[in-house]
Design a protein around this nucleic acid. Structure first.
Lengths: 321, 321
DNA sequence: GAGCAGTAGTTAATCGATTACACATGTATC
DNA sequence: GATACATGTGTAATCGATTAACTACTGCTC
């Protein structure tokens, strides 16, 4: 910057004003400065700028697993929305581990992100408190924590789950296997509670960890126990369950009815196509980014609840008639 | 930091020394400083530190599309490897657009990443030159550019493609549809060249853009033209092609043989499971991260070529006998 | 022509760390 | 007891920007 100033025969203050579009400099000076910038190929140092202004134009996003297409889609949406507002997004992968999540959150805070989007790995509010205590704008995404005091953006699957339960019961299933998420996550618990609630005693629950492997294991146990219908509570566990079903040579829906919470582009390609509860991922990402930007802006956004929808495709068999 | 120093009754220099594990401070002073840090909940400002040290402990990763599981997996691997070396990764989404790619690269440079991993959207070397001119360590990943002068990490699918071609020809296919990537990407061109080369005149090529929609369209055209076998050059176009095949009610492999470049966890779940050329994505990500770290370290890593493997699963029909 | 306002630009403090250099103290050596 | 050397700590410059406060100049009014 000093070089540019010298080159243009002005002070660094003037260069800075040109850079930041301040009113002061004469069109003529402005020209000279811009020419010097061009000539020297100067690019401002964002670190120095941020240090001075205490704004990094950066949002932090900590998610559980980038390999989970659900989160990838959310990340993508957040990123798009943020960019269109002039913000960058730094993504952190917590790998469903509370410890790694905490590490990442702290790293992001150390780098002075302007705000943080968090998909909490567990119910535990301590990390959220820590962030709030630091005064950093925070929005929770997809999941919440006990006694959360910050805006939350999530999908509401109750209606869809109730509808799904009604169909399963209506079709005469009496042993319905639920491959649930971890009970210490809000999504894991709530979805399962709603579904088992509506199934009134017909449900058998096995908890997984939102990963493929746990899906296969849960499916194996539930099928062994005589389940005639299986509902997986996220797409990765669904993938695992489908693998197990296939490995056992079971036919959907003839031998077993099947549904997944979370849609994926390849579900319609299976035979039969898989019935799902589709979450509005893109909207969730957008809404979360917007809430966070509002918070950064000093406004107080409301919580957002978007509805997930039941999409019938055939894998429930007669339950879809 | 000043507060901590005051609290511990020392100067900021000493605090800094404790923080950075310098030899100097007395165990006793160290204790006092650490106590003060603890008490005040002090966390060092990474911006200020980076400004002073000119090192951000951050790598930039610019990929074409986070929604493409291939890149998501790579991103994940890069991130893991980087973290284990004490580095953070900032991911940028170029969305297969050269322009957005350039924007992102510049943003990352402005933030003074210590090194950059780039999956170039096109063959054009100008962006790469710009980065190199800036003296920032750079490694290309998955794709290369014309006359690249920096380390490149990629998968070599020649052998697998040749093997695939041999099988298709051997099984008597005479109109083989190739859903190719964009000709202005190295992967798009090279894969297609190798395959069509080994198919010796039996290939019909339609270029897509590595996205689902273009896959369906290409598949539609090729099937209309009488193709009895289809090869998609990446998983998203493969997804699109499968959709089209299904929409037309064609049976794999009876009506049409099918294979995809890129494996995905759900390919084995289809009926029949899809034959693929699997790329070692995790290894690619790791290798790229390691190469970049080496470069940052002042060493000169070699190019890395990992081999992609043909995985036969049944979707080629008699070609797999 | 003195007084005032307005404009364009400069000087220097500042953000929060790191670190070369200076300084004070204690120990070993002759 | 003077000299040298090691050791622990403090002082202040520095990284590259932003910006409040100030200066210099022009032009206008009375």
């Amino acid at each position: 910057m000093k070089d540019v100033a010298q080159h243009a025969g002005v002070s660094t203050a003037t260069v800075s004003r040109v850079l930041n579009g301040h009113a002061a400099p004469t069109p003529e000076t402005r020209e000279r400065v811009l020419a010097a910038i061009e000539e020297l190929g100067y690019r401002p140092n964002a670190l120095a700028r941020s240090l001075r202004t205490t704004s990094t134009q950066t949002l932090g996003l900590v998610i559980s697993d980038l390999l989970n297409p659900f989160f990838a889609e959310i990340a993508r949406a957040v990123e798009d929305e943020a960019r269109s507002h002039g913000y960058c997004v730094v993504i952190g992968n917590a790998d469903e581990s509370a410890e790694q999540e905490a590490t990442y959150v702290r790293t992001l805070l150390d780098r002075r992100v302007d705000g943080l989007l968090l998909c909490p790995a567990t119910d535990d509010p301590s990390l959220v408190r820590e962030v709030s205590a630091g005064g950093v704008p925070l929005v929770l995404l997809d999941r919440t924590v006990r006694g959360a005091t910050c805006p939350v953006v999530r999908a509401d699957g109750s209606e869809a789950l109730t509808a799904l339960a009604r169909r399963l019961v209506g079709a005469g299933h009496t042993r319905i296997g639920v491959i649930a998420g971890p009970p210490n996550t809000s999504t894991g618990r709530e979805r399962t509670d709603v579904l088992t609630g509506s199934l009134g005693g017909l449900a058998q629950v096995v908890h997984g960890d939102f990963r493929q492997e746990s899906g296969s294991q849960a499916a194996a146990r539930l099928v062994d126990d005589g389940a005639t219908a299986l509902v997986a509570m996220d797409n990765l566990m669904g993938l695992g369950a489908l693998g197990e079903i296939r490995a056992r040579g079971l036919q959907i829906p003839h031998d077993i009815a099947f549904a997944v919470f979370d849609d994926q582009p390849w579900f319609p390609l299976l035979d039969p196509p898989i019935t799902v509860i589709a979450q509005p991922t893109v909207e969730m990402g957008q809404a979360a980014a917007l809430s966070l930007l509002a918070l950064i802006d000093g406004r107080q956004p409301d919580d957002v609840r978007l509805t997930a929808k039941l999409v019938l495709r055939g894998s429930l068999g007669e339950a879809e008639l």
